[in-house]
Write a protein that binds this DNA or RNA. Structure first.
Lengths: 181, 181
DNA sequence: GCCGTATCTCTCAACGCTGAAATAACTTCG
DNA sequence: CGAAGTTATTTCAGCGTTGAGAGATACGGC
């Protein structure tokens, strides 16, 4: 919008992304929506997330996993030996509901990557543990996954990466996302 | 991790978010994964997106819409009169597959918010148009939606918002997200 | 005019999530 | 002890997405 009105030859116009076009359309159709900066920022975060998720998927697929399944295996792995947590703890570490976690565990159990056993001290509770094949798989997958993430971000200068990570941390803190468990 | 080793009294330690804890766990369990900065940045973008989406949902629900449904209505509205596009164009503007768009259109049509009619010039094609109730609804919803987005981001200083938006634009350009249609 | 290729939309099974509620077991406290 | 409240896990209908591909139509070149 405003780029086209910039004095010629003074500065290279900043490159535009899909969100610039989207907000330009809104500005034209609904000029009464006078502040679209929030919409633009949120739109960029959502689009970036969606694109990044799509670029990660092939690595999981190559290891026979869904994104959601890797999420559970990785949480158990990160927790350290004996790689065992309860479904409740997995719900807290994830961003999904308890029903979704049950569903993930059912599938992982069928594949033999985790096992459920009763909690000795609390008969309501269950303990979910990585099996030996599950541990092997997640250890191999995370390696490829991290390498893939680095490859994906290689196109963005390290300075931008630091800047983004720090500003996003402040956003997450503002949104209350300060605890993993 | 490194915050705890900072010289005392020199600077307030930066506040930590869930991703800092997550990467700290990986660093402890898998010290061989030596560069976790890409994982941290991508993790922050994904968590932020998930949290923001959850905070938007109530506005759509209050207007009787799903997030995905609003997405279609908004795309038609932004396109300008006569608020008509083909399913193919909607697929390009969205971040989902053609099957998902068909599904969205089926539901919106059942609700009477859009209508499908054959394209006069191409018998393979369909033209999807906002109905009058659809136009009313999206015009009301987008107003509440934008106000909600501003409320959600109010906790983040304007300087951070600009910084983030600009850096994310560079990321999106690097990821090839330069065209909306 | 015809053929191969490209395009447009839709279908369908498998997967995945939510929100609400059911079930069972623990805990607190009078 | 026993009722009331809390916690842990699962269930289920409704919604939503992907990925592969089917079916119909359009188009470019010979």
């Amino acid at each position: 919008m405003n780029d086209s009105a910039a004095p010629p030859g003074v500065e290279a116009p900043a490159e535009t992304d899909a969100v610039d076009q989207l907000t330009a359309q809104w500005a034209r159709e609904r000029p009464d929506l006078d502040d679209l900066t929030a919409m633009a920022l949120i739109g960029r975060i959502n689009r970036a997330s969606s694109l990044l998720l799509k670029r990660m998927k092939p690595v999981f697929t190559a290891h026979g996993l869904e994104n959601a399944e890797f999420d559970v295996l990785a949480t158990l792995r990160r927790a350290g030996a004996p790689h065992e947590l309860t479904p409740s703890e997995l719900v807290l570490s994830s961003m999904v509901t308890s029903g979704a976690v049950t569903n993930r565990l059912d599938r992982l159990e069928r594949k033999g990557l985790v096992e459920r056993r009763p909690d000795p001290g609390d008969r309501r509770a269950v303990r979910v543990r990585l099996t030996s094949p599950g541990l092997d798989l997640v250890d191999r997958t995370v390696m490829a996954h991290v390498a893939n993430e680095e490859r994906i971000l290689a196109a963005l200068p390290a300075a931008d990466q630091r800047l983004l990570s720090d500003a996003l941390r402040r956003l997450l803190v503002a949104l209350g996302d300060t605890r993993l468990g």
